[in-house]
């Protein structure tokens, strides 16, 4: 029998050689805990993220736009389910995760605590929020936990449609009337900074980064990913004539990177600690719908039991 110390050494070496950890493999408790926290937070974000967009299904400006939005929301629900399944392989039940969400023990991305006020917000969410998520998720395709990595590969394939549909909305509006342009710019002004906060606190203040990087749970740091998103997105903004709401932003010729003004981390802290514009709304809606679905789950189980009983009777006769 190997000692705990030897097991940990083997585990670290296994990760170092870029092998993937699978559900039944031995893993340190801390790795399991971190992975459950990250996976459930990611899953909750996908599911809660359906709400700001759902707000616009009945008000989409055309049938085409409505069909696209519905497909996108359905994808987000699917992504949540892939990720819940991946988390369940670590020994936590779906029920427990939902309970943790409802009791605010588990978090979801703070971005979804902002409201989607106009149709342009649907454009900004697809372009900026999904754009930021893609940068993060591409990096996570190489995460060390097998089920998480495979879910990321699938999600990345589907997300690129999300970003393009958002950018298409923004492009259309920037080519439209003065009022439409103003709406697009207003959405940009409200979503730009929260999108940058999606990557989490700066590296020197991130509580989990170091250990997560060592275990290859995270492959790149918050600041590296954030910068990659900024560089991509600023060019896309300029292309359609939309202004990045940061007067002091400048291009650094020697590093070839866009340099932004300091991020207001106080706002971020306020929103993750429950004081964002929609925290209460998002959570209470999820709780309400979950309770409403209880009888459906119970009826489905009762139906399945009856079916089995009927089959058993059929054979004994």
């Amino acid at each position: 029998m190997k000692t705990a110390e030897e097991k940990l050494k083997d585990f670290d070496a296994y990760i170092e050689s870029e092998e993937k950890i699978e559900p039944k493999d031995w893993m340190p408790d801390e790795y399991r805990k971190t992975m459950i926290r990250q996976l459930s937070q990611h899953a909750h974000s996908e599911v809660i993220g359906m709400q700001p967009e759902g707000n616009w299904v009945l008000r989409a400006p055309s049938l085409r736009a409505k069909k696209i939005l519905l497909a996108k929301i359905q994808d987000e629900g699917g992504h949540g389910l892939y990720l819940y399944s991946a988390a369940e392989t670590l020994g936590i039940s779906r029920d427990e995760m939902i309970e943790q969400l409802h009791s605010v023990k588990a978090k979801y991305s703070s971005i979804f605590n902002y409201p989607a006020l106009t149709w342009a917000d649907i454009g900004a969410i697809g372009w900026l929020v999904d754009g930021a998520a893609i940068v993060n998720q591409i990096s996570l395709q190489r995460t060390s936990y097998g089920p998480y990595s495979r879910a990321m590969v699938r999600i990345c394939k589907e997300e690129s449609f999300h970003q393009r549909q958002g950018y298409e909305i923004m492009t259309t509006m920037m080519n439209g009337t003065a009022e439409q342009k103003e709406m697009a710019q207003d959405a940009m002004n409200r979503w730009w900074w929260p999108s940058l906060m999606m990557f989490g606190p700066p590296d020197n203040e991130s509580a989990h980064t170091k250990q997560s990087m060592q275990w290859k749970i995270k492959r790149e740091s918050n600041d590296v990913l954030r910068q990659r998103f900024i560089d991509k997105t600023v060019d896309q903004a300029h292309f359609i004539g939309i202004t990045v709401p940061d007067k002091n932003m400048k291009f650094n010729e020697s590093t070839q990177h866009w340099e932004i003004s300091p991020i207001d981390w106080e706002e971020f802290k306020q929103v993750i600690s429950g004081n964002g514009p929609c925290n209460h709304k998002r959570l209470s809606h999820h709780i309400k719908v979950h309770k409403q679905g209880k009888w459906v789950r119970e009826a489905a189980l009762a139906f399945s039991k009856n079916q089995q009983k009927n089959k058993a009777t059929l054979f004994t006769n």
């Binding site: 497909a71 359905q74 994808d75 699917g78 389910l81 892939y82 399944s85 991946a86 369940e88 779906r94 089920p147 495979r150 879910a151 699938r154 589907e158 789950r297 489905a300 189980l301 139906f303 399945s304 079916q307």
Partner: peptide, 23 residues
């Protein structure tokens, strides 16, 4: 492809279709 929750075989097949084969 992954896993899903369902109460019986038919629901399992339909959920699997909706979750894993949307494209």
């Amino acid at each position: 492809a992954g896993s899903i929750h369902a109460s019986d075989k038919n629901m399992a097949l339909e959920n699997a279709r909706d979750i894993y084969t949307r494209r």
